[in-house]
Nucleic acid binder design. Structure first.
Lengths: 193, 193
DNA sequence: GACATAAACGGACACCATGTCCACTTATTC
DNA sequence: GAATAAGTGGACATGGTGTCCGTTTATGTC
């Protein structure tokens, strides 16, 4: 699903593409996802035209850059689906999601945008994260630990919001605290977290 | 505290200043707080130099533009402090805060920035909003309806985060739902909201 | 190996926004 | 009504985005 069905890229194009993705990832990690594309192109040593040809929009490039991380997240989430304590598992998933967002400052903004205007590879990536959230959530509903009226959309939006509000160099204590508040609000009755 | 202690502005400067603020408010309300300052200046009919002279940073201008709204919020909050049901009052305050944020798209971003790097008139304005939150919160703690370990900073950050995640043209149902989740997480025990 | 050709490239360019600077204009004060 | 401090406007330097097109290059074919 990753590689498109078109004919394979020319060798030099392939090389450039990979280099761009790798460089972009480093730049996004250190300067945030709004880093200058012009500069990324310059770092790679290609023209801007080349960069834009491979990635028509910034979000396409972001999607390519974070894809590995997202796949890793997905793998971890898969394990959690079968966890013994769904609420706790959900908490861990939220934490992981938030810490991931932290790696790329400005990402939650993009995620939010994507969740409104659905289209493109980045939006798809976000969609997959939301589905993962749903899978972890469903278990909790089955066991009755999570309120029935809470949807994956709710949880995903809220998790993204919390991640967003803590991106600017805050300690992790606040993150823990806010996740705990979220979980309490999502849980049915008086479950302890 | 609003007007600085310096000598009064020259008549023409005063007029320009007011016009700029008024125009900016309209622009921020319709295009968000990232609206082009160049364009605002052009609309007013002054040079960019004039605008920047009055408001060295964009946040200074935002602060001036939203000041009236914030004062209105403050007045309303004052009433709530003495409310009979503190948790409910807090909910109303959060709702009002979020709806206000909605009016100026992009505002939560600025609020977050300000809460990190404290300085300038805008940061002060944000600080006053946080204090208001605290006042509403304290009552709830006194009556034992709100957890002791929840601070005004927590609530303010979370409220801002929720407002942020719902700025992009979503219905108010989601807002209600998310505020309810927040309140549940903040409340001690099993208070109904 | 040479050639034809489609694919890919690079960087100049048009556009837009920010924020600064300074020669000029104008309100105020005496 | 002159002196002067206060205020003004807009040109400019800077830096980012996204497009366009003349040039270069990989690749399949003979």
């Amino acid at each position: 699903m990753t590689t498109s069905s078109k004919r394979p890229l020319r060798a030099d194009a392939r090389r450039n593409r990979d280099l761009i993705v790798e460089t972009a990832r480093a730049a996004f990690a250190s300067k945030g996802v709004d880093a200058s594309l012009e500069e990324i192109a310059k770092t790679v040593g290609v023209g801007q035209g080349t960069l834009y040809r491979h990635f028509p929009t910034r979000e396409d490039l972001i999607a390519a850059a974070i894809q590995d991380d997202v796949e890793q997240l997905a793998r971890n989430a898969d394990k959690r689906v079968r966890a013994r304590y769904p609420l706790k598992a959900l908490g861990e998933w939220l934490r992981e999601l938030a810490l991931f967002s932290r790696t790329y400052s400005g990402l939650p903004n993009r995620v939010l945008d994507a969740s409104v205007g659905k289209s493109g590879s980045f939006a798809e990536l976000c969609g997959s994260l939301e589905s993962l959230t749903d899978r972890v959530l469903v278990r909790g509903k089955e066991t009755g630990q999570i309120r029935a009226d809470v949807t994956a959309e709710d949880v995903f939006l809220l998790a993204n919001a919390v991640a967003w509000s803590l991106t600017k160099a805050r300690g992790t204590e606040l993150l823990e605290k806010h996740i705990a508040i979220l979980l309490r609000g999502i849980a049915s009755g008086t479950n302890e977290v």
